[in-house]
Write a protein that binds this DNA or RNA. Structure first.
Length: 195
DNA sequence: ACGCAGATTTTCT
DNA sequence: GAAAATCTGCGTT
């Protein structure tokens, strides 16, 4: 998988812009070695915009061991564990010390289908934040790593047309449910299902 | 196709 | 003790 990595400067901006801008880019994982490389095009994301966002883990500047990566440099991974069994992957945004991130919710699978099927055991492979983590082998071991080099990378992809980006309420949260901070590609069959 | 409950553990109250 | 940025399996329609 080739292409230039998205640079830190891209992430050091308002989280909603980064979220929209990530659509169409490519997430690559070399977890388990390059022979088991997996990759997909980002088709669905959610913005968690900072201490003033009741749904953000760092709401009210809750700085704990868990939320520490949110305060780290832009362009790194925030991987958290939830519901007793699932990992979810975020890209940390905004300047260092401002705790915000973009949750990667769904990918269009592009490479490493056999590895993804083996890890997942079933379809869909990458439609849902915990599903794509399982398919790409993402766990807490990757919490805080760079997304510009190393085993997890986000590469420049094809930028979608603006009119193909849809905004709507975030999923699975109980706070600030009417902020339209979920973005996805219109008509994509890889977007996760809404309950 | 839809709805509901179970899984399982970290984190904070 | 309860909730959590979820997913799956099983029941019913």
């Amino acid at each position: 998988m080739q292409g230039s990595a998205v640079q830190a400067k891209f992430y050091a901006r308002p989280t909603e812009s980064v979220a929209r801008g990530l659509l169409g880019h490519i997430l690559v994982s070399d977890v388990g070695g390059r022979r088991h490389q997996t990759a997909g095009r980002i088709v669905e994301v959610e913005a968690y915009v900072g201490p003033h966002d009741p749904a953000c883990h760092a709401y009210g500047h809750r700085r704990t061991p868990r939320t520490e990566p949110l305060y780290g440099p832009p362009g790194t991974a925030y991987v958290y564990f939830t519901y007793g069994m699932h990992w979810c992957l975020n890209a940390v945004t905004e300047p260092q010390e401002f705790p915000a991130a973009v949750l990667i919710r769904a990918l269009e699978p592009l490479a490493g289908f056999a590895t993804m099927r083996k890890r997942r055991g079933k379809e869909p492979l990458c439609s849902g934040p915990a599903r794509l983590c399982e398919a790409l082998g993402v766990t807490g071991a990757l919490n805080g790593v760079s997304l510009q080099r190393g085993v997890l990378r986000i590469l420049e992809g094809t930028r979608p047309r603006k009119r193909d980006i849809v905004a709507g309420p975030r999923i699975g949260i109980t706070q600030a449910t009417n902020w339209p901070l979920r973005y996805y590609l219109k008509g994509s069959p890889w977007v996760s299902a809404v309950r």
